[in-house]
Design a protein around this nucleic acid. Structure first.
Length: 428
DNA sequence: TCTGGGGTCCTAGGACCC
DNA sequence: TCTGGGGTCCTAGGACCC
């Protein structure tokens, strides 16, 4: 049996944990650059004129009218709260697969007692008690069914209290008949459209299609889902996260940029960020991909986008070498005269640091490892980007993303800790 | 004025090898 | 009339996830 634990409206819930004054009130969290709504709590979802993924500038009036509490995204904070939740889940099973920032699968085979619902409720209660975050728990024989159970748990939260177990054939059939085909985990827009066109509207109807049809039109991926819905496990619990195949970042600028100098600085800064992640997992990169594009939504701006992948002479995790290569790549795709909206970098061909193939003509610079370690130690101790390459420049204000409403980073900054005021000592 | 970011996996087709 | 068979590697594109 597998349990799926999923935090309710995770980002919005995080913002509410240390703000009791917001409990029961609508809260939304915005994407980077304060672009669109990417998370909304139950109260905000109830306001039908505030759809998810809607650009903020289009719904500013509605947000104001409903007195919605709006936050910029605060990933340092969400990441740390996620860590707390995942740590608690390890108390319930030795096998935990952290699937995303707000959900985990845990293997409860042989652990879950006769009363599976009570066990699931215990998970929910402990996470809430230790972190203040509400979660839903779905339990079933396969991951795809656990996902379905979780959806039922949340949909009928009043009756079920956000916990649901599919442990009998009757319950499985009932769940599948209720679940719309487009809501099956792994069936997206395209496949849902095709399935509906042949009269398949529910998960149950999907399971009644032939294996051959599913394989032909939805590849082996679809077939696995089909099996899982039929109660045959095909997706295992992936305890050890696979090493990443690429580490990238790409963020929109706060305003459009034409100047190559500024784009170079942003690019160098992004490289510094991803190189730090690379070193943290003790790897080196063999290729760098750099891409650049204008604002695709703008009708009046001329459009241009390009991307290039270059091979490094030697796989490396040296920020300075990576920046030098990325800059060369950027020069090859930059064309003057456009208003650029975004530059992105991606490190590829990731290999363990100890297996890097040397290059006779590009000897490793002396003391590079020591220098990078010093970089990372200082930045860990004194805060992000306290030490950086001069190639990142000092004009970050000109390109960095907009975050007007970011809340405190309660759990990762000493000067932003939550403060509790008592009645006797009013705030100074 | 203003429209997110970071990933995974699979397939088909082309280039190439012997 | 008829033009092999068995591979690998790479890339682009499509589909999906949170």
């Amino acid at each position: 049996m597998v349990a799926l634990i999923d935090c309710n409206s995770f980002y919005a819930s995080c913002e509410q944990v240390f703000r009791p004054d917001l409990w029961g009130k609508p809260v939304v969290v915005l994407s980077n650059n304060d672009g669109c709504v990417i998370a909304a709590n139950r109260e905000a979802k109830a306001l039908t004129d505030i759809p998810m993924f809607e650009p903020v500038f289009k719904i500013r009036e509605q947000l104001k009218a409903h007195q919605v509490n709006v936050f910029s995204s605060n990933y340092a904070f969400y990441g740390e709260m996620s860590q707390r939740v995942m740590n608690i889940l390890h108390q319930f099973s030795p096998q935990v697969e952290v699937y995303s920032i707000d959900e985990s699968f845990i293997d409860v085979t042989g652990i879950i007692s006769a009363d599976a619902t009570a066990y699931a409720a215990q998970i929910r209660d402990r996470v809430y008690r230790y972190t203040g975050l509400p979660v839903g728990v779905g339990v079933a024989k396969t991951k795809v069914l656990a996902k379905a159970a979780n959806r039922i748990a949340k949909k009928f939260h009043r009756q079920l209290n956000t916990v649901y177990v599919i442990d009998t054939e009757e319950k499985r059939i009932k769940a599948l008949k209720w679940l719309k085909v487009e809501d099956v985990w792994g069936i997206g827009r395209q496949h849902a459209k095709r399935l509906k066109s042949i009269g398949v509207h529910t998960a149950y109807e999907f399971t009644k299609l032939s294996a051959g049809w599913v394989r032909r039109h939805m590849t082996v991926v679809g077939l696995r889902i089909w099996d899982e819905l039929n109660g045959r496990p095909r997706l295992g619990i992936q305890e050890m996260p696979k090493p990443k195949k690429g580490i990238g970042t790409a963020k929109s600028f706060g305003r459009p940029l034409e100047d190559l100098g500024l784009i170079e600085e942003a690019c160098a800064y992004y490289i510094s960020e991803v190189a730090e992640v690379l070193r943290a997992q003790k790897s080196c990169a063999t290729f760098i991909n750099v891409f650049l594009h204008t604002n695709r939504f703008s009708v009046k701006d001329a459009q241009y986008s390009n991307s290039i992948t270059i091979t490094l002479p030697v796989a490396t995790n040296d920020t300075l070498r990576l920046i030098a290569s990325a800059k060369k790549a950027l020069y090859q795709i930059y064309k003057p005269g456009y208003r650029y909206k975004k530059v992105g970098v991606c490190l590829l061909g990731i290999v363990p640091q100890e297996f890097v193939q040397g290059n006779l003509f590009h000897p490793e610079k002396k003391n590079v490892q020591a220098l990078m370690e010093t970089f990372d130690r200082l930045n860990y101790k004194y805060g992000k980007a306290k030490v950086y390459s001069a190639l990142c420049g000092n004009r970050k204000k000109e390109w960095q993303l907009i975050q007007e409403e970011r809340g405190p980073r309660y759990t990762t900054r000493w000067d932003e800790l939550a403060v509790i005021h008592t009645k006797k000592q009013p705030p100074a």
